[in-house]
Design a protein around this nucleic acid. Structure first.
Length: 295
DNA sequence: AGGTGTCAAGCGTCC
DNA sequence: GGACGCTTGACACCT
């Protein structure tokens, strides 16, 4: 089992998600920003390797405006060597990578233009993973999308639109249950019809499910991951006390985490901790799992 | 230097 | 029909 955290490391004093305003776009600004982001990404990956945190989500902001029409600059060529070198670092340390486009990426929108923009955004994500030279265990996770007043029709549209995506996207795409609309059962339907794996999100399942227990839902999601996809990926978080339902906890609640690990039983998976203090909680989780001999 | 309004993108919910 | 939240985090302009 690998432990991971998303996008940002809070103890290094750099971030790989520097961006700028659209109106400040220039080739120079783009290259300067991407260069700085990749330098920071290297530091974060080195930190992860040294601390045995072998699962990491790369930020979608690595290349600002990458899928926007304004960006005609040849960043993939300009940074090919740097990407390849980062990829070697990842592979040599047996690290696993995921990416998670934000809520604007919706392949099931009835609006053809939103689909077109979403496909462009997914192309960018697949390109980053390809430039890193990673195998198909590196995944891109998205949600089911909007319901648009009819979930079954919208779920159909997801599956039809999926077929129109580039193969480089299709082979890396996984679908994750969300906290309000598409449950694990909905995602399993998508999986049956498209062949893509289901990424189980424990916190979303708590908030939005069809009543399945954690072990059952997780087991069904895990069964959708093929050999070439690698071990199932799982997102974990817990409720921030005294906040609106669905808001992520500031720091890991080890009692809740222990209960989750127990519920998961003997299943093998990689776990992403969606917790605000990032690597700090990931280190606590790593220590806990070392004690109970799961890693 | 520090404070704060705003940012490419969309959905659903609440008012 | 408009504001708001969503892992908001980070920029960019203001004082």
């Amino acid at each position: 089992m690998n432990i991971g955290y998303p996008c940002i490391n809070r103890s290094l004093g750099c971030t790989a998600s520097h961006t700028f305003r659209l109106r400040s776009y220039s080739s120079a600004r783009l290259f300067e920003t991407v260069r700085a982001n990749l330098l920071c990404l290297r530091r974060v990956l080195e930190f992860n390797r040294e601390n045995n945190l072998l699962f990491f989500r790369v930020t979608s902001d690595l290349v600002p405006f990458a899928s926007h029409p304004v960006c005609a600059d040849p960043w993939p060529e300009a940074f090919a060597a740097e990407f390849s070198s980062l990829g070697a670092l990842i592979k040599n340390s047996t690290m696993r990578i995921s990416m998670h486009p934000d809520q604007f990426t919706l392949i099931n929108s009835p609006d053809a233009d939103i689909f077109r923009r979403s496909a462009a955004e997914l192309n960018y994500h697949a390109l980053v993973l390809d430039l890193l030279g990673l195998d198909l265990t590196a995944k891109i996770q998205i949600h089911g999308g909007g319901v648009y007043g009819d979930k079954s029709k919208s779920l159909d549209r997801f599956c039809r639109r999926f077929e129109r995506l580039n193969k480089k996207i299709r082979r890396r795409l996984v679908v994750e249950n969300d906290d309000r609309q598409y449950t694990v059962a909905d995602c399993l339907q998508i999986s049956r019809r498209t062949g893509i794996p289901v990424l189980f999100d424990s916190f979303h399942h708590q908030l939005n499910s069809n009543g399945e227990d954690v072990a059952g839902a997780m087991g069904m999601a895990a069964a959708t991951w093929g050999k070439r996809d690698g071990p199932p990926m799982v997102d974990y978080s817990s409720q921030k006390k005294g906040e609106r339902s669905g808001s992520h906890t500031e720091s890991i609640d080890l009692r809740d985490f222990a209960a989750f690990i127990t519920a998961a039983g003997s299943l093998d998976f990689d776990i992403m901790l969606e917790i605000k203090d990032k690597e700090k909680s990931a280190l606590l989780a790593r220590n806990f799992l070392a004690k109970v001999k799961r890693i």
